[in-house]
Amino acid sequence: MSFVEAYNMLKAVCRYLMMFPLLFCFSAISAEVYNLDESLVPVDSRAKNLRSQAIKQGLKEVILKNTGTQSALTHPDVVKQLANASAMMTQYGYQDLDGKLFIKVSFDHKRLISLLRQAGLPVWGKQRPLTLVWLVEEIEGERKILNDASTSVTRTSFDTQSSNRGVPLLFPLMDLDDSMQIGINDIRGQFTDNVANASLRYQANYFIMATISPQGEVFSYKMSLYPRELSAGSSQYNPSTSQSGESASVEQAVVDITAAASEYYVSQYAIADSGEKLTTKITFTDVSKMKQLVEIEKYLNQLSAIKTVAVASIEGMTVEFNLGLFGNEEDLHRLMKLDPRIESIGNTSSNNIEYASFGSENNANKPTQIYYWKGQ
Rank of each mutant, 00 (worst) to 15 (best):
G93I: 06
I184H: 00
V78D: 04
N35M: 04
H109I: 08
Q243S: 09
A47H: 01
A356F: 05
T283N: 05
E5C: 10
S150M: 07
L293T: 04
K56A: 13
G216T: 03
S2G: 15
Q215I: 05
L132N: 01
K80T: 07
T67N: 05
Q302T: 11
T131Y: 09
F219T: 07
K281I: 03
L176M: 10
A31W: 02
Q203Y: 15
E361R: 13
Y264L: 11
E32V: 12
P42N: 02
L135Q: 02
Q161S: 08
V167A: 12
L303N: 02
D175Q: 06
T241K: 03
G141F: 09
N301I: 12
L97H: 12
S199E: 13
T69A: 06
Q190Y: 09
Y265I: 07
T280Y: 01
M9W: 07
L300F: 04
R341V: 03
Y371C: 05
E263V: 05
L169D: 12
A54M: 07
V33Q: 00
T192N: 02
Q91C: 09
V133C: 09
A47C: 00
N365K: 14
I257R: 00
G324V: 03
G120Q: 09
C25I: 12
T131G: 02
V218L: 14
T241E: 05
K366S: 00
C14N: 13
S244C: 05
N49M: 01
D77Q: 07
E251N: 12
D96Q: 15
V167F: 09
T241I: 14
S106A: 09
T280V: 00
Q268C: 08
S288T: 15
S240V: 15
A259G: 13
G189S: 05
S86Y: 01
N301P: 01
D159G: 07
N347Y: 09
S39L: 10
I184W: 00
M336W: 10
R155I: 05
K60F: 10
K48C: 00
N363V: 07
G166V: 03
S224E: 14
K374N: 15
R201P: 06
S357R: 07
A54H: 04
V255M: 15
D148R: 05
A198C: 09
I208E: 06
L130F: 11
I296G: 05
N351P: 00
L36P: 01
K110T: 10
P129I: 12
N328L: 03
D98P: 00
S234W: 10
A54Y: 00
A259V: 12
N363C: 10
F107A: 04
V254H: 07
E217Y: 04
R228H: 09
D186Y: 01
I145A: 06
L73H: 06
R143P: 02
